[in-house]
């Protein structure tokens, strides 16, 4: 089954990014195809490579990167939602006259059209909202 996964909830203030990741691991283990993943709203903070939790805590950004690399999954981050929250690649940082970019490797900035496309081409769309 072709799944699309939308993560909306904050990685620090909700379980959305954690539960979404575990959901995808379970779906892949059950034989489903690699899902399309779209990070929107507060969830874009997952793509901030400067996020540094204490060493004895799980680094969710690293776990998403590992999952994407292992299974060849594209991690799309909404560009408008990301820039609004200070998450951007070098090119956008330059364009907005910021000193540096901070987009983590393995994540890609793109537009909302990707969300609509992923939605329509999926057999099932699963949203991980989280309290905003």
């Amino acid at each position: 089954m072709q799944l699309a996964v939308v993560i909306n909830g904050s990685p620090t203030a909700s379980q959305a990014a954690n539960t979404g990741l575990r959901y995808i691991e379970a779906a892949l283990a059950s034989g489903h195809q690699e899902p399309r993943v779209f990070f929107y709203g507060e969830a874009v903070h997952i793509a901030n490579r400067l996020t540094t939790p204490p060493q004895d805590e799980s680094n969710l950004t690293h776990r998403w990167q590992a999952l994407a690399q292992q299974h060849n999954i594209e991690l799309i981050v909404c560009i408008a939602a990301a820039i609004r929250r200070g998450v951007m690649d070098e090119r956008e940082a330059k364009r907005h006259e910021q000193t540096s970019g901070n987009l983590a490797e393995g994540f890609e900035l793109s537009g909302l059209g990707q969300l609509i496309d992923a939605t329509l081409n999926a057999d099932r769309l699963i949203t991980f909202g989280g309290q905003q």
């Binding site: 929107y40 507060e42 909404c78 939602a81 537009g111 969300l115 609509i116 496309d117």
Partner: peptide, 28 residues
Amino acid sequence: ILLVLRHSPYSSQIAREALDAALTAAAF
């Protein structure tokens, strides 16, 4: 697409971002 809006307008950005998603779908 059915777009469900469940949050108040100004407590977070989610209402605006939901509206952006609706307009993008319509633009496509």
